[in-house]
Write a protein that binds this DNA or RNA. Sequence first.
DNA 1: TATTGTTATACTCTATAACTATA
DNA 2: TATAGTTATAGAGTATAACAATA
Lengths: 169, 169
Amino acid sequence: MWGDRQVPAELAAFPGYLMARLGHDAATRFREALEPQGFHPRDFGVMNIVAAAPGITQQQLHTRTGIDTSSMVAVIDKLEGLGLAERRPHPDDRRVRAIHLTPAGLEALQLARRTARELQHVVFAALRPDEQETLHRLLTKLAAANLPSGGPASDNPRPSSACPDPPTV
Amino acid sequence: MWGDRQVPAELAAFPGYLMARLGHDAATRFREALEPQGFHPRDFGVMNIVAAAPGITQQQLHTRTGIDTSSMVAVIDKLEGLGLAERRPHPDDRRVRAIHLTPAGLEALQLARRTARELQHVVFAALRPDEQETLHRLLTKLAAANLPSGGPASDNPRPSSACPDPPTV
DNA sequence: TATTGTTATACTCTATAACTATA
DNA sequence: TATAGTTATAGAGTATAACAATA
């Protein structure tokens, strides 16, 4: 929406505008940083969730991510085509595919997470460490109040712990 | 991109993700708040800039906003159709149209600004006043470092001051 | 020959609807 | 009859390319 255009001084006075601009900028840079690895941010989000809940179904992924079921097909197709994820038959319901990450998928996920951490290091470099902490705290507070914050388990297939590399930054 | 879905706990640890989500949320709510007045956020941005620089050309608006010239035609068409803006012949170059807000346009802009201020009151309500101030300061600092911050006059046709209602929040 | 504004077209992204196979 | 996954189609939004008038 905004290209890499100037911030009109008339609008910079609106913190909501600044947040939208900065958020869009962060998302764009993340998308570009992930591109060499062949990933879309959407793939990254899905892989994170699958890693935390192996065997999750596409329907549940749809619920968790908001990605349309028809689009989810394409995401899983892509990951499966790259050998990073696989559809396994569901033991109880032959309509359902249980999604799992392959070892290669976990490895790719860890690499992508490192990319994400490194990018954030750059994006927030202008702030001192204590300022970064403050910002994160305020954003978390805002998210808790404004966004439907779901823990990782609202309709979790199993309370797994197969996430070997929790994002720490 | 994100609908009004839950924030996956695995991603909430990334401040960049939080910022993108919150920014998108703020932009969506602003778009919805502006809808009853018949405006798109794009219209709001253009009107703000025109108010600050009456007589600006569509090319310059394109440079300032990043909105494609072909899309800009539609924006000005719409504002002109609503009687909020007008294309005036440029004194020096007959190819150029000088864009101005009509009195009705200024009035509509002030109403939209009030809507923006009221929305921000809601969006940031979870933060104490001092926290809001801190957040704005940090966002401003980030914007200065990460975004090509342009004052209102980079290729300004005239250093006007026809902005009767500077956004103070 | 280059530029402003305009129009028409193409492209990208996503949602909608329809289909199958199961339940 | 309802649901999981898939496929095909349509829609919104935006950029691209061609055009006319003017410089």
